[in-house]
């Protein structure tokens, strides 16, 4: 594990803690800008969790596309929804106002496309091969034959 990834991981965990705090605080205390804080915090979770899960692979074109795309889409959409909420506007397309359209596109259709493609890409560039699986099974077999006490079982 590289030092660069260790630092990145620490940053991700700190950001997750801040996001959790940002999701919690506005529910307990009414603060100025609490809606914005809550929105930014909850929209950050998916991308941060994917970044943590991808590990060192997060810093690859596929990983950065997945994480950056998800972060931009979700954060951009919730901020756009907050900006549009008090503006009385007529329909933009399909009879829906801009907020309704942004919600459908930014939280559903575009992430669906992004995630389906990015997952194939991140899996292709870092896929497990037969050797990896064989190594994993062999490691497990060695531990079992050595009488490994499997706690939790």
């Amino acid at each position: 594990m590289t030092t660069g990834w260790r630092r990145a991981r620490t940053t991700i965990v700190v950001l997750l803690a801040l996001a959790a705090l940002g999701a919690l605080a506005p529910a307990v205390v009414r603060l100025p800008g609490s809606d914005v804080l809550f929105a930014i915090s909850v929209a950050a979770f998916p991308a941060l969790l994917v970044a943590l899960a991808l590990g060192p692979r997060a810093i690859s074109p596929a990983g950065l596309t997945a994480i950056g795309g998800l972060l931009l889409l979700l954060e951009g959409t919730v901020l756009a929804l907050l900006l549009l909420r008090d503006r009385a506007e007529g329909p933009l397309a399909f009879g829906l106002p801009a907020g309704g359209l942004a919600m459908l596109a930014g939280l559903w259709l575009l992430p669906l496309l992004l995630v389906a493609l990015a997952h194939v890409w991140t899996s292709s560039s870092t896929s497990l091969d037969d050797d990896d699986l064989a190594r994993l099974r062999a490691l497990a077999a060695v531990r079992r034959s050595a009488g490994d006490a499997e706690d939790g079982r």
Partner: peptide
Amino acid sequence: LFICLPVGFTSGLLCWVV
């Protein structure tokens, strides 16, 4: 719809994260 629209990305989240 905030309840159901996350299906746009939760499938990826499930696979990547867990």
